[in-house]
Design a protein around this nucleic acid. Structure first.
Lengths: 199, 199
DNA sequence: GTTTTTCTAATGCAGATGCAATGTAACAGC
DNA sequence: GCTGTTACATTGCATCTGCATTAGAAAAAC
């Protein structure tokens, strides 16, 4: 057999090129030729590794959720090791925000995919899977904190978690248009958590 | 002079056709021919009323912000007549959410434009103008409420307003993918306002 | 050396796209 | 009733799109 190539790695590289185009020129500028040029390969390779454009976009979406879950998972797992509910919740809320250039790019692309799904019948399988997971985690942590009397018992855990999760989602959008920066986002999240864990 | 036509009204009609396409098939499906077909006119009319496609998209964006501001403005003005700060804030937070089919369509289109702006250098003039305006209004209302001892004095008005505004933005996105419905959104908003105005 | 995989390079193609040119019907003012 | 402006239809065009095909070469396992 000839030059052995890791197909999955190659696909990941091509997906990165796609991200670069989508984040700087928009998802509608993602064409087979554009991705090929950005990746520095011939247009044939794109067709070689992806049977169709739709499949390329689908794979890139899968990849971006993978990267996002990886990033968030690391930070949350790290916070979980402390056993501090507030730290875990803080990690949950901040881990998905665009804090550096890399995450900013990925978030921009995610927004583009999100808009595409919203405007086309609403098939957003992974988008719908992330939010409920985040909310459930927050509810659980709040439940633990309540058991330890770290948060007041009169709180509605579900509604608190909903409020926090949606706030983070809005914060993500706002940060992408530079309405808030990373420091301000931390401040807002810490302020809210402070309210819950103080009273 | 011949058949006098209200150009602005015609442009509004064409913009509505554009919204219908963008909200059901995505913004990348908005072509001169598609808009013409959707509006039931010849393709030439599109070119006649808009010098270029870019200009058509720009006009439609301007129109959608106009419609949004109109809707929100009405509800907020109505609430302001009561003189109740909590009612005003409630109106601010709920007025921008997609509660019926019409607003849902417009919000979907807005998200599409938003994604386009985020992924293309970040020129989002009106997007950046709406959020600060909403936050300022919330800060003002909180200030009034504090003067009347309706909210605790230890609140950080700016951070509270930021938290509420971003929560609404996130709620909007979540509602578009049916993660929450209008009733749940009201519940969350009322819960949060209840916290502020009870303690 | 043979074979199989990976890739280049070139090309074609049918459809869609934005845009422009040309032709024409209607209606207001004189 | 002519004239000229306005509103519109039709057609064509260069370009780009996704997708397919072809001929061939480089490279590593056998």
């Amino acid at each position: 057999m000839p030059k052995r190539v890791d197909h999955e790695e190659k696909r990941r590289d091509l997906a990165e090129a796609l991200f670069r185009i989508a984040s700087t020129r928009g998802l509608q500028s993602v064409t087979l030729r554009a991705v090929a040029a950005e990746a520095g390969v011939s247009m044939f390779q794109i067709q070689y590794y992806f049977p169709t454009k739709e499949e390329m976009l689908r794979h890139a979406w899968q990849r971006i959720t993978e990267l996002g879950a990886e990033r968030a998972g690391q930070r949350i797992a790290e916070a979980m090791r402390t056993g501090d509910e507030r730290a875990v919740m803080r990690a949950c809320l901040l881990a998905v925000l665009p804090t550096d250039e890399r995450s900013r790019m990925l978030c921009a692309v995610q927004i583009a995919y999100f808009a595409l799904d919203v405007t086309r019948g609403g098939q957003a399988p992974d988008q719908q899977a992330m939010m409920p997971y985040l909310v459930r985690l927050l509810v659980d942590q709040l439940g633990l904190a309540r058991k330890r009397d770290r948060v007041p018992s009169h709180l509605d855990l579900q509604l608190e978690a909903d409020a926090l999760a949606t706030m983070t989602a809005g914060l993500l959008s706002a940060m992408l248009v530079d309405a808030y920066d990373a420091k301000q986002a931390e401040e807002i999240v810490d302020y809210r958590l402070g309210q819950l864990f103080s009273a």
